[in-house]
Write a protein that binds this DNA or RNA. Sequence first.
RNA 1: GGUCUCGUAGCCAAGUGGUUAGGCACCGGUCUGCAAAACCGUCUACAGCGGUUCGAAUCCGCUCGAGACCUCCA
Length: 489
Amino acid sequence: MSTRKGALAIYNTLSGKKELFRPIHEGQVGMYVCGPTVYNNVHLGNCRTFISFDLAYRYLLHLGYKVRYVRNITDVGHLENDADEGEDKISKKARAEKVEPMEIVQKYTLDFHGVMTAFNALPPNIEPTATGHIIEQIELINTIVKNGFAYESNGSVYFDVEKYNANQPYGELSGRKIEDLIANSRVLDGQTEKRAPLDFALWKNASDEHIMKWPSPWGLGFPGWHLECSAMSAKYLGEVFDIHGGGMDLKFPHHECEIAQGCAATGKKPVQYWMHANMLTLNGKKMSKSTGNSLLPADLFSGENVLLSKSFHPMVVRFFMMQAHYRNTLDFTSEALNAAEKGFEKLMLAIENLLVLVPSSNSSINTKVLVDGFYAAMDDDFNAPALVACLFDAVKQINAIVEGRATINKDDLLVLQKEISVFVFEVLGLRRPTEKNDDQRLSNVMALVLELRGSARENKDWITSDKIRDGLSNAGIIVSDGKDGASWK
RNA sequence: GGUCUCGUAGCCAAGUGGUUAGGCACCGGUCUGCAAAACCGUCUACAGCGGUUCGAAUCCGCUCGAGACCUCCA
């Protein structure tokens, strides 16, 4: 168990402040993150949120917490808009592709998992689906109705926002006042079932043509979008749990509704620490599927997109994201990604060197200051960019040792090797891209080729030497001439 | 229109009352047959205008600009 636990501060959206993190149960953390609605391929913006919370999860694990990390899959109930005829996103896609809704769900869940694996995001401990928890959702609605905060209307059930607000403020999380919300709420056509525009659906009745529907006390229907997170977080993490995360754009109304549902059901605020990840922007605007201003991870990995000059390894993209704080917007540009790639390679090279460093009898560098810097950065609301800056300080020191301008003793070396590996690979979740020279046959061939080129160079046969170098370059192999002979990658 | 956030060097991006954040690019150097790579060094910025303060990029006010939410969104 780490002894560093007490220092972690988390910015809590609910209070608007950084607060020292104190879990409800000593040594244990319950964390819920809103997952994707699987009606389409996840774009890079979606990924940023999940990677941000993967970082938080990883650091909590590193600190020694026993974490139960729940991230849902929304496979029903997410409507196109709030009007009565608003269509379910999954159903719509299923009809467009002429397949079963569950085929859509399966297809895009697999895509999501594949992308998360590529980004080296740890899987959550539980990944519940909305359709798998219809009973829990119906029970929750029953409780809310029984407590007087919801009403039935024409086979649907709505949350009574104004009644709720009479006792506890609705809009706390997003800093809204109900009067302003009422004044500004858009009246959509066909909202005939609701008593007030602000009321949101807990259960919607299903018309005959609806494919995804379940029996309930109010007839055939399906659950409202906001409900699933309340039902599933309560089931797996309890009525009150530690951390709830999600994208900034879910703050209102989704998370606001979750608070209302939780309070209406139990009288207790469901979440201790609300965390919100900021948006990834493209052309200065939020990445968004609906506006077409988005980029798919697959395009990035293949380089097949007009915005990109080349392809990028998933770890370069992850490193790029780690250079910005999760609460700030991050602007995506091909240029910024190129810069991240260079920096990432520099870091990886220094780590390779660190692992084979030869210790001296004494140290001219201060290992403790470096390592304390790593913790201080992450303790400050998971400040990954500050951690990266500290890591590059270490890189500079490692290079100095490699070149004999500094020394490190055996104990310090062991500490540095361990802590850098921990923070780079376990906490930031980076992986070294698979080495091309894993192939033993290729290694042997290259050893021979470089030996021949070495002979040519000794004989000042630059024509042969350069021909080999250029030929290999065309084959995607880069030869580097160092002091101790040539190497390749 | 309402609510809120942001504006940091060529680019990306931390910091948020007093000490060079960092990465990339540029430029200079070491190395090299040449080049690349690698390494070292240089480049010292906080939208504008006022105010508070011994001291402001950081706090306050105004102006300008950008974005988010208010409707599905990570």
